[in-house]
Design a protein around this nucleic acid. Structure first.
Lengths: 337, 337
DNA sequence: TTGTAAGCGTTATCAT
DNA sequence: ATGATAACGCTTACAA
């Protein structure tokens, strides 16, 4: 019923103090006598007074709203990321204004809107946003933090270490005695997928295994995994590394179903991400775990630096991944290993 | 580099018009001559002027920010919901400010924050927010739209029709010639799960089948599905209805794996939601589809009504669900059907 | 149609 | 430590 919230001016009048006194008791380091501060705080609490955030933003030119730009949040991995990010932001008094890029959008419009809201800091989870838009944003004194994406521009980024972890997979296959291995990638041209492929390929060669096939190139979807496996199975790989878990699980189902092969007895497979499904009874996929907690923690650190104007805000941090061995890899049959 | 965005006052001076003229050309139905309007628009475009949203909100007391309160967005179903909701909001010039309730939060604080931002409209996806907080919000002239949740208070809601669709499942089992069926629910006390159970139970009785077991009561998780199936299998049900797809898929894996039963040859199962996994090769779960598109469309309709102050904003709309028959149900063995 | 001026609810800079 | 008062960038009567 109290349609109009109390303003600082009204509260001030009620307490017989000046409006600035109210303002001061609600801003950090300001000079108010403990006595009046307490009086104000108590009255505010009783009457339900809250400083108006919009007015504060207008006056201070800085808001505690943080733009979060995403696109195609299909994967549970992104969900997890968004989840953790949003609770951590809240814990720090920051509020995520969400922008989900529709098909075809390059993010420039969205950043424009953010600018209208006096937002200075943005976290980008989507790979689809245009570099030029990001660069322009960063140029006029605003900050952007890229997740799992790299850019030359002067922006912060936090990414999983695709290179080291993909080598881990090659090493694992080698330990298992594999000779012929395959890679199944995500959409052609995706930096992430390309990095994983390059590192895996290189390490495979170093170890003297042969990369007998490369598949994928479509979407990061279950069905793409199914199809890719079929296109690759003719080359008789003993082990397949998939660019993510969805592909891998699709591949596993195709292998066990239509192709009548046993995983891991006949063929080993490894995914990437460690989405929660990967651990499920009946799936138990060996995979590379992206440390979402570490990623979001790092992102928050960069964000805090950006807000405080500290130098670290444009750091580029790389988060190590771990190989989680579950039940889809096994030593090669007839292998001495 | 242009750290300070152009203001309407500066633009006005540049064009030799008054500041209000600028304001007027950017507000809907205002009296500006076509000539000056065009002049202003052109200059604004060239110089990159954008009206400052924060100042507008402060002045107009209404913002195009919409609060979105969620919790435990684990399920792909919620992901889909959030995804669609966010793109549809954007399409209407609305911006979702995301609040992800941390464990133990009842949402009151989050609504308080929203109030500080002059936001009037909130969409609640979480079942965890306290009714009292919602009621209080609705009372002081603000609107809330509940998704898949019902409340007595004067608030809008859009929900899937749990009752009718659960009966559909019972009918399906009956058509298949089943005699003994079971239900596996979500967390005890969850309204959604209770509704599904009640309707299913009632219809099962009406059709003369026997409900031989009720399981679940833990989380909506894969592992809970695995465990629940084990606890229920002793009663020898011929078909099981799960309160959601995650449970059902967990149950299916347990059935096919540890329990060595064939699905659907030995036992039929049906889920709820129709998350994308349900359609995957190798899963192909028969399930009740929640029409996320219809749900989000309805939510947007309510939202628009709320914004325009129209009466429909507190409607309670129910969205029908469809039974999607895939490969986890089959006529009972030795059944005449 | 256009301009003037008074808010909107803060913060910040002065005095006192 | 506290109180005036001028921004902040807009919207909106009211006047011209």
């Amino acid at each position: 019923m109290d349609r109009k919230p109390l303003t600082s001016r009204q509260l001030a009048k009620l307490l017989g103090v000046s409006q600035s006194t109210i303002s001061r008791t609600f801003s950090r380091e300001s000079s108010v006598s403990p006595k009046t501060r307490e009086k104000v705080l108590k009255a505010a609490d009783q009457l339900g007074y809250r400083p108006n955030a919009i007015a504060r933003i207008l006056s201070k030119h800085e808001s505690d709203i943080v733009g979060v730009v995403t696109a195609d949040i299909l994967s549970p991995f992104y969900l997890d990321l968004l989840n953790q990010l949003s609770v951590k932001m809240q814990k720090n008094g920051l509020h995520p204004l969400l922008f989900n890029l529709p098909a075809g959008a390059d993010g420039a419009d969205q950043l424009d809107v953010l600018r209208q809201y006096n937002v200075r800091n943005v976290i980008v989870i989507s790979g689809r946003i245009a570099s030029s838009a990001v660069a322009k944003w960063a140029e006029d004194g605003r900050s952007v933090i890229l997740i799992n994406r790299k850019m030359d521009a002067n922006v912060g980024s936090v990414r999983s270490d695709n290179t080291a972890s993909s080598k881990l997979v090659a090493d694992h296959f080698n330990d298992l005695g594999m000779k012929r291995v395959a890679f199944i990638g995500g959409p052609t041209g995706t930096p992430t997928s390309m990095e994983r492929e390059a590192a895996f390929t290189q390490r495979v060669a170093e170890l003297g295994m042969t990369l007998c096939a490369i598949g994928g190139g479509q979407e990061y979807s279950h069905e793409a995994g199914v199809e890719a496996v079929k296109s690759v199975i003719g080359k008789e790989p003993e082990a397949i590394f998939f660019a993510n878990d969805r592909l891998a699980i699709g591949g596993m189902f195709a292998l066990r179903g239509e192709l009548s092969l046993r995983v891991p007895d006949d063929i080993s497979i490894v995914g990437f991400d460690d989405i929660d499904m990967a651990a499920w009874t009946g799936i138990e996929l060996t995979t590379v775990r992206q440390d979402v907690t570490a990623i979001t923690d790092a992102a928050m650190t960069l964000l805090e630096a950006a807000i405080l104007g500290q130098p670290g805000a444009t750091d580029s941090v790389e988060i190590p991944c771990a190989l989680i061995e579950r039940k889809t890899t096994r030593a090669r049959r007839n292998s001495p290993a």
